[in-house]
Design a protein around this nucleic acid. Structure first.
Length: 280
DNA sequence: GTGGGATGGGCAA
DNA sequence: TGCCCCTCCCACA
């Protein structure tokens, strides 16, 4: 489930296995042949994640950019290579380890300038130390668009996907259709801090867990299946907090989940909701 | 075993 | 707006 947390984890792991080493780069399915030739037998200097984007620095003019998208998957292991399986876009190897990449949205070699341009259009990433929170908060405070859309807009804030969008808004008890400019700086700062905490907590047992133990039907021990999220993919089920029914709606091409009881439209913001329904 | 849906985002039209 | 990527996981038979 690649949301920002997992991409940062990949960056760290790949740096351990392949950083500062000469890398053999291949394009088994032929869809990355030119790129592979540019990188092959060069030293991988560093790896960085910005939101959901990964950059592998093979030297000036040789910046490998990878975005997993919905289907992209990495696998790593120790040599020898595993049996070939499926469509393999990219294969890496050092003297000891291999890496496989399947189904990415982006796998391309950029120049330094192109990389900078791409990074410049990504909003601050709560997982990065150099993130400038103010840039995200200012964008949201200046926008009449619903906060539920702004949180998923990678140019506003990066690394948050559909699961964290739904869960962050629930934890903040914010209605997803409230306009960005109807929120306070304080509310947004709290949202940012919670995003950082949740993304850092990341995956437990290969699952994203956002529920607090006390809110779960079974509070002791690890979160059971079906108790890992408050609202994400829990439509028509009872809310863990109020018992009301969780809602789901298609919104900007993605499914949006929320609890109408716990995340009510604030008085006076009814027009925002109406506008949304009219434009849908 | 089978089939539908999903954690995204770029691009053509 | 719909298509592409073409994987993984789950529910259901």
């Amino acid at each position: 489930m690649p949301e920002g947390n997992e991409l940062h984890r990949h960056a760290t792991q790949h740096a351990e296995l392949f950083g500062s080493r000469i890398i053999t780069v291949e394009a088994p399915n032929g869809r990355f042949e030119d790129g592979a030739a540019l990188l092959n037998r060069r030293k991988l200097r560093s790896i960085e994640a910005y939101g959901k984007h990964l950059f592998y620095d093979f030297g000036p003019g040789r910046q490998l950019h990878i975005h997993l998208g919905l289907y992209g998957k990495f696998r790593t292991g120790e040599l020898p290579f595993p049996e070939p399986r499926g469509a393999l876009r990219l294969r890496f190897s050092s003297r000891k380890h291999w890496l496989e990449l399947r189904g990415p949205t982006a796998c391309e070699v950029l120049t330094g300038t192109e990389r900078e341009k791409l990074v410049a259009r990504i909003g601050p990433d709560p997982l990065r130390e150099d993130a400038e929170v103010a840039a995200a908060i200012d964008r949201i405070l200046a926008s009449r668009a619903p906060i539920g859309g702004l949180l998923m807009d990678q140019s506003v804030i990066s690394g948050i996907g559909n699961i964290y969008r739904a869960e962050l808004l629930f934890r903040a008890r914010l209605n997803p259709f409230r306009a960005g400019n109807s929120l306070s700086k304080r509310e947004l700062l709290k949202l940012w801090r919670d995003a950082r905490a949740l993304l850092r907590a990341g995956m437990i047992d290969r699952r994203i867990v956002t529920t607090r133990p006390a809110d779960r039907p079974h509070p002791s021990g690890n979160a059971r299946r079906g108790e890992t999220h408050y609202v994400y993919r829990r439509h028509r089920l009872p809310c863990f907090v109020c018992g009301g029914e969780i809602s789901r709606e298609e919104f900007i091409g993605r499914k949006l989940y929320w609890c109408p009881e716990c995340q009510p439209a604030v008085e006076g913001s009814g027009s925002v909701r109406k506008q949304h329904l009219l434009s849908a």
